[in-house]
Each structure stands twice: as structure tokens, then as C-alpha cells.
């Protein structure tokens, strides 16, 4: 063996060892990255779970307050009205007593009406008893009593059931969307179209406003930290739904909500 051969073999061995080391390092780094990704996935999962827990807690609390208001205070106010009615034959006449009683009764009715509105906004009773599409229709009826904007609701005749947890989230998304339209879009008319196939639920919310809905939402988010848009996104995220905004024709905004696999829990 001459020195020439020794050098060649030596170099070869060194090279192989070098390559081996490099491969080892790369392999290890890959493992580190994979581990990090795993941790991040777990973090995201945890975050989602936390969000779901917060939202569920919030809904539970809203439901409790709504029911207390509606059932307890409502019953008491109704009794108040009945009692006022019994005063009627006992009142003296001549000094406007009857008129005053009438005004008081009307005022009681106004309070009851406010109570209904607050309670229904807090928690839609129709959702549990009659399902999502009826609850949305009731929501539109309620908003239309306020006259600020005219909301039309149409649905197809398929009547597929929606999983209750998802139904509540979808209801909240539409509610938030309408609230945002009222605040930002300067619309006079809103059309909500509700359609289902066995696997896909689609809701189109079309307004005839200034088409600035998304823009104003973004602005509000920067200026006041308003969470409207974020709420919509997180709720849809939880139930695996999506929302897309498009400019309407000739004006306004079209929001398209889609939820797949809506008949079963996640």
C-alpha cells in the first residue's frame, strides 16, 4: 500500500463520516421540527376547546337570564296588568283617573314588549322547540317590529334537522351579521335565504346597503377593537363552517355561510 492509496482511503472514510454526520443532524432537526409542530397542534386544539367552553358557558348564562326575565318578571308584570284591570270599576270618574289608568296599563304593555325583545335576543326559545329555520324566521319577525330595516326570510321546503349545538352557533352568526348590517351597512332591506341538502346547509344574507359592510367591520375592529367579525369567524371555526363576502349587484353585500355535515355533532 503506498501513501497515495492511504490518502485516498482516508479521504473516502472522512467523506463518508462527514455525510453520516450531516444526515444525522438533518434527521434530528426534522424530529425537532415535527415535535414543535405537534406541540403547536395540541396548543391549537386546547385553544379551541377553551373557546368552546367559554362560549358554552356564555350561552348557558344568557339562557338563564333570559328565562328568569321572561318567566319570572314576565309573569309578575302580567299579574300587575291583571290587577290594574281590577282597579278600573273602583276608580272615581271625572278627574282623568280612567285615562291615567289606561296610560299605566299601556305602559305596562310596553315594558312587557321590551322584556320579550331582550329575552329573545339573549336566548331564542324557538330554537329548542321549533328548530333553526323557524327560529331565524322568528328573529326576522322580531327585528321587523323595530322597523329600522325590513328583513325577508325564505327557506326551501326540505326541513332537515340541524344538530342543536351547531344550530345555536349558526343562529348567533346570523344575528351578529344582521347587527353588523344595522350598524355599518345603511341598508333598508335584507334578504335571508336558507337552503339545505342532506350534507350542506347554506345561508345567504344579502343586504342593499352601501357595500361597505366588510370595510366598516375592519375599521371598527382597528378603531374600537369590536369583536363582531372575530365572533362570527370563531363560531364558524368551531362547527367547521365558512363565510364569504361578495359585493352585491347593484349594491350592498352578499354574505354566504356554509356548514357541511350540519346534522351531526363534531
Amino acid at each position: 500500500m503506498n501513501s497515495y492509496e492511504v490518502v485516498i482511503i482516508g479521504t473516502a472514510v472522512m467523506l463518508i463520516m462527514g455525510i453520516f454526520v450531516i444526515v444525522l443532524v438533518i434527521f434530528q432537526q426534522k424530529q425537532v421540527i415535527q415535535h414543535k409542530l405537534l406541540i403547536r397542534d395540541k396548543d391549537l386544539e386546547l385553544q379551541k376547546e377553551r373557546l368552546v367552553a367559554i362560549l358554552q358557558g356564555q350561552e348557558l348564562e344568557r339562557k338563564r337570564i333570559a328565562e328568569d326575565l321572561h318567566d319570572e318578571v314576565g309573569a309578575q308584570l302580567s299579574v300587575l296588568k291583571l290587577n290594574l284591570n281590577q282597579l278600573q270599576p273602583l276608580l272615581k270618574t271625572g278627574n282623568g283617573e280612567q285615562e291615567q289608568l289606561k296610560e299605566t296599563k299601556e305602559f305596562t304593555d310596553t315594558i312587557i314588549q321590551h322584556l320579550r325583545f331582550i329575552s329573545q335576543s339573549l336566548h331564542p326559545q324557538a330554537l329548542e322547540n321549533l328548530g333553526l329555520s323557524r327560529a331565524l324566521d322568528s328573529f326576522c319577525n322580531m327585528m321587523n317590529r323595530n322597523k329600522q330595516v325590513q328583513i325577508h326570510f325564505t327557506e326551501d321546503s326540505n326541513h332537515h334537522d340541524v344538530e342543536p349545538e351547531k344550530a345555536l352557533n349558526i343562529y348567533r352568526v346570523v344575528q351578529e351579521l344582521i347587527n353588523n348590517i344595522l350598524k355599518h351597512a345603511q341598508a333598508t332591506q335584507v334578504q335571508i335565504t336558507y337552503m339545505t341538502t342532506p350534507t350542506l346547509l347554506s345561508i345567504y344574507v344579502v343586504d342593499n346597503g352601501n357595500g361597505q359592510l366588510l370595510h366598516s367591520l375592519e375599521n371598527a375592529r382597528h378603531k374600537t377593537g369590536s369583536l363582531g367579525l372575530k365572533n362570527i369567524e370563531s363560531r364558524l371555526n368551531i362547527i367547521g363552517g365558512t363565510i364569504h363576502y361578495k359585493p352585491g349587484v347593484p349594491a350592498g353585500t352578499i354574505a354566504e355561510i356554509k356548514v357541511e355535515n350540519y346534522q351531526h355533532a363534531e
Partner: peptide, 26 residues
């Protein structure tokens, strides 16, 4: 207390003979 068209229709369909609100006149 529920003033809701959908409840009214649902109850009438299920056999109610009338639907009144609790703050109705005596």
C-alpha cells in the same frame, strides 16, 4: 308570554283552540 308567529302556528297545528298573550285584557 311568547308572542311569536311560529309558536302560534305550531300550537294551532297541534290542537290548541286559541292563543292568547298573558298581557291580554281580562
Amino acid at each position: 308570554m311568547y308572542e311569536d308567529d311560529n309558536f302560534i302556528v305550531h300550537l294551532i297545528e297541534n290542537g290548541a283552540n286559541a292563543y292568547l298573550l298573558k298581557n291580554a285584557e281580562p
